[in-house]
Design a protein around this nucleic acid. Structure first.
Lengths: 204, 204
DNA sequence: CAATGTGAACAGCTTCACAGCC
DNA sequence: GGCTGTGAAGCTGTTCACATTG
């Protein structure tokens, strides 16, 4: 396919595809058609074919997509073929739950540090990770941590963002219910749990 | 405006607007222009005007939107003007964090029940709520609970969904990393935390 | 024959530009 | 003058239809 800008929506779906292909591998399936995959994921098949075709042709006509090779390719596209370290800011209940969440490792994502500003928490451990003081944000760069999960109260979110950007963080998963304004452009993904639940009654 | 289908994206933004208007009320602001609001939320102003105009004209030209009345109107549109009860299925770390999360109440959302299938957890309390056995799903209808937050392991998600639908649940916030197939059509919102974090490296 | 890859048609959402109103 | 409300234009993403290939 001649070059066309890759839609953000396509990127958003790639982790889903990757998870599906990883699962298929454990089922010892060698290939899968876009039709079958679509049914598993609740999409339709042209969607999947188009998404994958943005990155070149890696299916086989008449057969489908090779499970192992496609998984590897998606990992490469998403830069998940090597471990990506993330810092968690905010060791509250939500933050703590995330550190323990086993789902990150299958994407090669590693929560390598946890920071909080509550003196009572600092030094305590969550699983294998020791909670550090928030002022240690400045050490993230040399520790090769470029991703952050922001799970602090709304009041602290903006200030923390500024510090994260100064510390060389390149992407933020924002779980606090407010719009962040980074000094330099940084990819931010917002997840506002209460808002999402708040949408449901409309559709009842 | 003559009738036009209301975009899902508009609905998705309404909780954000509602939160902003609620906050403005505490700041004793009486009106706000689409421009000012857009800046706070990181949107642009025609977006906000169009979104709100789908539900009728409730701003004042030359002035802006009345804070109190607009908040009330949005609450009404989203059916958040009365308390909406939700059940949490899965009292793991993530589930427990959600029950304690204070952000739901500002939308009139109330986690009124928590269910889990681990005998060791049943009977224990999370804050004021006692954990019940999962088989009590069947009691949700008569307890006027129509929303569910699904925070169970992937293996249990599909089966639980089927039971929820049977029990009259009308909307599901799905936190498990899999595609649910409800027997009857039910609004499902998927939040896959690991996938979202997995997107970030691509943009670095 | 079965399934991919893809231009083209289509649908949905956002942005623009400006008329209308306070 | 300032700001809303809105048709129209523009853009992005999805679906279709089918030529193409193993």
């Amino acid at each position: 396919m001649k070059y066309r800008k890759i839609p953000d929506e396509t990127i958003r779906r790639l982790p889903m595809y990757l998870r599906a292909f990883s699962l298929l591998r454990t089922e010892a399936t060698e290939t899968i058609s876009s039709r079958q995959l679509a049914q598993r994921l609740g999409l339709n098949s042209p969607q999947i074919r188009k998404d994958l075709s943005y990155f070149g042709a890696f299916g086989t006509r008449g057969v489908g997509y090779p499970v192992e090779a496609t998984a590897r390719r998606i990992r490469q596209i998403l830069k998940l073929n090597k471990v990506q370290k993330a810092v968690l800011i905010g060791a509250g209940r939500l933050g703590t739950a995330l550190v323990a969440y086993p789902g990150f490792s299958s994407f090669n994502l590693d929560i390598a540090a946890v920071l909080d500003n509550d003196p009572k928490k600092i030094g305590k451990k969550i699983g294998p990770i020791k909670i550090e003081n928030t002022d240690r944000i400045s050490t993230l760069k040399k520790r090769d941590i470029r991703l952050a999960i922001l799970a602090v109260p709304a009041e602290a979110a903006q200030k923390t963002t500024e510090n994260l950007v100064k510390a060389g963080i390149r992407g933020i998963l924002n779980l606090s219910p407010c719009h962040l304004k980074p000094a330099r452009p940084v990819k931010i993904i917002d997840i506002d749990l209460a808002s999402q639940l708040g949408i449901l009654p409309y559709y009842m």
